[in-house]
């Protein structure tokens, strides 16, 4: 009987001690916010374009953390989807065409002699990349432009173009080598036939 009592007391004491430690730890090492949102937000391209249907990248990150599909980000493209799939340990899926398609990087360009200085694009720009004042010509700071498209729609005189960023020696990339294993003629034609079929 004594042994049982001792065992119960010991276990109780242990439970109390560990409970206190855990309680202290939960207060001392409390993390504000959901850390997974931060990680998802770090992967998203931060164009703040809203093509996913959320007002910015962070809200979409929060939505993903709450179970939304990971394939709604056209600026990020397949690379972002793959990264998200790896982070969340889910199957990678192709980009949802409903939200737009993957495109080359673009920057906004204001045709300055047509600009009437209405400041509507300035208010629309999520990263403050447009410079100007009321009734003064506006211009885009190219280095800051994320190519989100949001300034195009509010412009009352349609003087904003989205121009693809030209390939220069500075941003040129080495192309991937052609696929090997094409010695036999049928090797070379097989994929083409498959795609036709």
């Amino acid at each position: 009987m004594d042994a049982i009592l001792t065992a119960i007391l010991v276990l109780f004491a242990l439970a109390l001690i560990f409970g206190l430690i855990l309680g202290y730890a939960s207060v001392r090492f409390k993390i504000e916010g959901n850390p997974i949102v931060e990680q998802i937000d770090a992967i998203l391209p931060q164009t703040q374009c809203g093509q996913c249907g959320h007002p910015g990248c962070r809200p979409y990150a929060e939505a993903i953390a709450n179970g939304e599909a990971i394939n709604k980000c056209p600026p990020g493209g397949q690379a972002t989807i793959d990264q998200l799939a790896e982070l969340l340990n889910v199957e990678s899926i192709p980009l949802d065409a409903e939200h737009g398609s993957e495109d080359v990087r673009k920057v906004a360009y204001i045709r300055e002699d047509e600009c009437i200085g209405c400041t509507k694009c300035i208010q629309a720009c999520p990263v403050d990349a447009i410079l100007g004042a009321a009734k003064q010509m506006h211009t885009v700071i190219v280095a800051e432009c994320t190519g989100c498209d949001l300034c195009v729609e509010p412009c009352p005189v349609d003087c904003i173009d989205m121009i693809p960023v030209a390939t220069t020696i500075g941003n040129w990339k080495w192309p991937a080598p052609p696929s090997p294993m094409q010695i036999i003629a049928t090797d070379r034609t097989a994929p083409a036939e498959e795609s036709q079929a």
Partner: peptide
């Protein structure tokens, strides 16, 4: 670029 855009946003 993304980090920069995030900071600005």
């Amino acid at each position: 670029r993304a980090d920069h855009a995030r900071a600005r946003f």
